[in-house]
Simulated assay, not measured.
Amino acid sequence: MGLTNMSYTVPRTVILMGIPGLEHIQFWIGFPFFCMCLVALLGNIFLLIVIPVEHSLHQPMYIFLAVLAATDLGLCVAIAPKMLAIFWFGLCSMAFDVCLVQLFFIHALQGMESGILLVMAFDRYIAICDPLRYTVILTPSVLVWMVIVVAIRATVLVGVLPILLKRLQLFHSVVIVHSYCEHMAVVKLAAEDVHVNKSYGLFVAFAILGFDVICVITSYILIFQAVFHLPQKEARLKAFNTCTAHIFVFLEFYILAFFSFFSHRFGHVLPYAHILLSTIYLLVPPALNPIVYGVKTKEIRKRVIQILTLKIGIQH
């Protein structure tokens, strides 16, 4: 790489710092993150096994849950190996092109997760507000197209980010103040005008997260209106209970997402606090989602008990 006036031209490698300010304890910080990843991997793999084999779960909500589980697995695989290699073994260097690939997958999978939460909200809206037409509206072909649209939207919008970064020629540093390749962290390395990069990054965030959160909130306003108009208390509780898992997952994802997004661009949060929060934001939902749906879904709980009982029986 060329060096001119302390600037780097087209770097071949970048250095990920991990968690600046906490280097002396990041070895130990790696263990809770590893536990979160392990829970996420085991939980989501379990969902991907249970949902196809359990016929009572062959419903749109659980098909979307399976797609969410696959997305969460992808996020863990995209983030955890390199992050733990930095924390535990000091392997901080990464090829610049590999960094851009990681950046693409992390943000594209985030976008897909947001989109899946949106279609799950639409599923709940149809189930409660128009139950008689539920199977007519949410046919298998419609489900497939909804997932395809969510995937294409995230892939196309996020795919432009690494292309715009690749066009940059001058960098004032090759040290990324982060534990993974995050878009704004890479943009801040540039020693030239990055207004297009920043503006497009904001556009992507609002086109995906902003649009989705508005639609999900609108769906739940309509859902709650329909629920409160039900004549019987038991019917209201039953209808509301079908939404609680999704509401919890929605809140944990978007609250962490918007806090991470706005603190990085507009806030005055200490770097190590932002990095910890943004990493938690990416790893906590994949770990919690299977637990939340496992606790709230009778069929999944039943299957867990069957598997555990079978294992105990084999051991004895």
Rank of each mutant, 00 (worst) to 15 (best):
H24P: 06
I25V: 11
I25Y: 03
Q26T: 12
Q26G: 04
Q26D: 12
F27C: 13
F27D: 08
I29D: 02
G30Y: 01
G30N: 02
F31E: 00
F31Y: 12
P32I: 02
C37L: 00
L38Y: 05
V39F: 10
L41A: 08
L41V: 13
L42W: 11
L42V: 14
G43L: 07
G43H: 00
L47V: 11
L47R: 13
L47T: 13
L48P: 13
I49F: 04
V50M: 05
V50L: 03
I51N: 12
I51G: 10
P52E: 13
V53F: 14
E54S: 14
S56D: 12
L57S: 10
H58C: 11
Q59Y: 15
Q59E: 10
Q59N: 10
P60M: 02
P60I: 04
M61I: 09
M61D: 10
I63Y: 13
A66E: 11
A66H: 01
A66Q: 03
V67H: 14
L68C: 07
L68Y: 08
A69Q: 10
T71I: 04
D72F: 14
D72N: 15
L73Y: 09
G74T: 01
G74R: 11
G74N: 03
L75Q: 01
C76N: 07
V77K: 14
P81L: 08
P81A: 04
L84A: 07
A85M: 14
A85H: 15
I86L: 04
F87R: 09
W88N: 04
W88T: 02
F89H: 12
F89A: 09
G90M: 02
C92G: 05
C92L: 11
C92H: 06
C92K: 06
M94A: 04
M94W: 00
M94Q: 01
A95G: 05
A95P: 06
D97E: 12
D97S: 15
C99Y: 09
C99M: 11
C99E: 03
L100K: 10
L100A: 01
V101N: 01
V101D: 09
Q102N: 13
L103C: 03
F105M: 05
I106Y: 06
I106M: 01
A108L: 13
A108C: 01
Q110R: 11
Q110V: 15
G111P: 02
G111I: 02
E113F: 09
S114I: 07
G115M: 02
L118Y: 08
L118R: 07
V119I: 05
V119T: 13
